Computed example of a mutant assay.
Amino acid sequence: MNIKDLFVKKKRYATIPSERAKQEVPEGLMTKCPSCRTIMYTKELKKNLLVCASCGHHHRMNAYERIASLFDEGSFKEYDQGITSENPLNFPTYEQKLEDIRKKTGLNEGIVTGEGTINEGPAVVAVMDPRFIMGSMGSAIGEKITRAVEEAVKKKYPFILFSASGGARMQEGVLSLMQMAKTSAALEKLSREGLLFISIMTHPTTGGVSASFASLGDYNFAEPKALIGFAGRRIIEQTIRQELPENFQTAEFLLEHGQLDRVIHRSELKETLANIIDMHQV
């Protein structure tokens, strides 16, 4: 053997997985945490309420996943499934966008409302779903929230709302903005009846939603590191000509400055809600 062969390493070439090899891994089997980059089995992540076991990052929950995680099995009854958005301003491509997102998500609108029991305590709930045009608030969402609040008043049940929204829906213009007043007026009626309203802000809760019903709870809670605010960081910095803190508009920042009552880990949420409902039973 030539002595040079002892010092020359053979080149190693990276192997490119074949299309067949790629197809053998089922889509959705694994999930990568966007925070710590840990790769985990999706099934295990769901068992852990979509919270990363490595860093505690709260992945987004859709409306039905959240309802299933909180309400007693078989107790939930949905309201107003037939209420859907239309196109009152004849906004271009809006109707097609709605049709496409309904097929993709299986939802008629960006919120699910209904009633059920949490550890046998009855409650009316509204859960926004960020998959539906980023949970943006249109006329149908305002109507469904208002009807759910009215049902809570009628039955003397507490009302729980999970917000997850980019704000008002631009395709409905001023009609979308009117939902801020409409829902707030319904919640004022709930308050006058001496009934409980619990608001839980999830990632993200912004714009007209954060400036109206999401901030009107008797208890205002949030999930860890949820983005909560009205205008975006860049707009605020340009307006006030100051650099904002790194954690600005996070749930923890708002808690520190008195705008939230508590930041609650998802694993503790059901027990917390059940205790509050029990404490306020009329």
Rank of each mutant, 00 (worst) to 15 (best):
I3M: 04
K4V: 10
F7M: 09
F7A: 03
K9E: 13
K9S: 12
K10S: 14
E24F: 08
E24P: 02
E27F: 04
G28W: 12
L29H: 02
T38Q: 09
I39R: 06
Y41I: 05
T42R: 03
T42N: 10
K43V: 12
E44R: 11
K47M: 02
N48K: 07
L49Y: 07
L49F: 09
C52E: 05
A53D: 03
H59K: 01
R60A: 14
A63C: 14
E73P: 04
S75I: 03
I83N: 02
N87F: 06
N90H: 07
P92E: 06
Q96S: 02
I101V: 15
R102E: 08
K104F: 14
T105H: 12
G106D: 11
E109P: 00
T113Y: 01
N119Q: 14
N119R: 14
G121A: 13
S136I: 02
K144R: 15
I145R: 04
I145G: 01
E150M: 12
G166T: 13
L175E: 04
Q179E: 15
K182I: 05
S184I: 00
G194T: 11
T202F: 10
K225G: 01
A226N: 01
R234F: 00
I235W: 01
Q238G: 07
Q238V: 00
Q242L: 04
T250H: 02
A251T: 08
L254Y: 05
H257N: 15
Q259Y: 11
K270H: 11
I276R: 09
I277K: 09
D278Y: 09
